[in-house]
């Protein structure tokens, strides 16, 4: 339960000056790839040599068990050390842990992702799953929307993915807090993009970002008629074990690592979380 298994870095994508995406495969002692199955929204406990462990969301689509992506922002010791690592280097992985997004409920429904910064990482796999479902089932009448806020144009992550989504018919709306001369798009907080995002009734809104952003976004969505059961978010907490024992991620009687990290707004309201103010 606490012993990490070996993973090897297959590919590294630089998202911006602080963020890189690492494509990993789990490997056995002979270096052979072994399958790794997960749900969108789940996380792993990632070990980096001499730096300990950190919880990191899986940012790729769960369809292919031969690899998975972790998108990591430089925040402290561990997350800086990994930025120096190269393809072929080994990492330690425990998990996957937690409950992901309820994909069975989401497939085939209208979907609105509202993300701030690296908060898009845990939501990305959901969009990819819904998009491929839409294609396979030839569902022309469902709408997939991304509202994505970054601090500056430089901070935007997943550019290539977003471009591909756009070509596939996802309505992608980007905004930055501080524009620079190169920026042609919207300026302002991500909540500013939500003006016409009213609920279709059975659609779902998925929200992830810094606590203030989550708070403001949820307030907006409620005002636009989204029901508390159809607003989903994923929480970030200090975590050490990932399996509900170490106590660090406590929220009243709830352990975010095992009971979450994905919660509906109704669940959050019962827990008096900091994200709701």
């Amino acid at each position: 339960m606490y012993t990490p298994k070996s993973a090897v870095i297959k590919e590294i994508i630089s998202e911006n000056h602080l963020v890189k995406t690492f494509r990993l495969s789990m490997v056995d002692s002979q270096g052979q790839t072994i399958p790794f199955r997960f749900e969108a929204g789940q996380f792993v406990m990632l070990s980096v040599p001499h730096r300990g462990e950190a919880p990191i969301s899986i940012s790729s689509i769960p369809a292919n068990p031969s690899f998975f992506d972790l998108t990591i922002r430089k925040a402290g010791l561990l997350t800086s050390a990994i930025q120096e690592m190269a393809v072929g280097d080994h990492l330690g992985v425990r998990g996957p842990f937690g409950h992901g997004f309820p994909l069975d409920d989401l497939l085939g429904k209208d979907l609105l992702l509202v993300a701030g910064g690296i908060g898009l990482a845990p939501l990305k796999g959901v969009m990819e799953s819904c998009l491929s479902w839409k294609k396979v089932k030839k569902l022309t009448d469902i709408s997939l929307t991304l509202c994505y806020g970054s601090r500056t144009p430089e901070d935007i992550c997943f550019r290539a993915t977003i471009e591909k989504w756009q070509q596939d018919g996802v309505s992608c709306r980007l905004t930055v807090d501080e524009a620079d001369p190169s920026w042609q798009g919207e300026e302002g907080l991500v909540t500013g993009l939500l003006a016409d995002q009213s609920s279709s009734g059975d659609g779902y809104a998925l929200v992830c970002g810094p606590p203030v952003m989550i708070r403001a976004t949820i307030a907006r969505l409620q005002a636009f008629g989204w029901s508390d059961e159809h607003i989903l978010t994923t929480l970030e907490r200090h975590m050490k074990c990932g399996v509900g024992v170490c106590g660090h991620c406590h929220l009243d009687n709830t352990m975010v690592c095992t009971d979450g990290p994905v919660f509906t707004l109704s669940q959050l309201q019962e827990m008096k979380v900091a994200e709701l103010g």
């Binding site: 925040a75 402290g76 606590p211 970030e236 907490r237 200090h238 991620c249 406590h250 900091a274």
Partner: peptide, 13 residues
């Protein structure tokens, strides 16, 4: 520091 996260945010006051 039990609940403090990278960047200093602490969800428990």
């Amino acid at each position: 520091g039990f609940t403090r996260m990278a960047g200093g945010h602490n969800p428990i006051n």
